[in-house]
Amino acid sequence: MRIEVDHHAGLPGVFMRVGDKVKINARQLHYRELNNMIKNAALEGTEEIVVDNVYGQRYIGSGIRRPVRIILHGIPGNDLGAFMDGPHIVVDRNAQDGVGNTMNNGTIVVHGRAGDIVAMGMRGGKIFIRDSVGYRAAIHMKEYRKFRPVLVIGGETQDFLGEYMAGGLVIVLGLGGRGKRRFTARHIGTGMHGGLIFMRGEVEEHQLGKEAAVAPADEEDKEIIRPFVEEYAAYFDKDAERILEGDFLKLYAKSHRPFGGLYAY
């Protein structure tokens, strides 16, 4: 059987400006070329950039400091929105590893799944993943005064959620299963020393890292997460009130300096 790969779905790299919008065909574009086009369009004050045929190009949206909307059709590559400071990115399919790596501000909305290390070292802004995520989501997420990053995951997560987490807010909704979600992730909150993780469903004690504490979320806690659950529900056409009716667990750090005694004498 002869499998032909269609390298020519439209002309590669075609860049069209329509009013305040820009349209790019990313087929066969290297990430440097694509990101230069996106950055230049953003610098020129474009309000919306639509990119078709995205297949694995890395660093999309990286370092952009304007509130531009970037709509991606396809599968963006690793480190989507790394270091970005303001854009609103929408992905219509799955995302790969490193979504929102060290991002500072803006929003990423993924209509699908994301891979490993979502929100790694994230410092601000919001990420919404419709389905599940891979390993080490929110690893070393941090906050400083008014900069408080938020990660909302619709499904579940794999191991090491919130590893070495130092700040910020993670909400895992456990949607998609039947009945109450029994999470399967292990080593949740290992090395955690700040921030909060809310999980809608059940987690056993042995699934937690020894630096994480757990308690049922009360009404006050639910008010903390409400605006972000509502925003998630709006993006993905879900019922926020029904989601909020569920029982949430709150995970928090037992200590703000769990390794203080290890390295300091």
Binding site: Y55, G56, G115, D116, D159
Partner: peptide
């Protein structure tokens, strides 16, 4: 503890295993 990435896919009679998701769809 999955320190390197792996993703799999299936479409009809074809199975895929890959470091990244995009090339399977490409």
């Amino acid at each position: 503890i999955r320190l390197r990435p792996l993703v799999a896919g299936r479409n009809g009679d074809f199975m895929y295993i890959s470091s990244e998701e995009a090339p399977m769809h490409l």
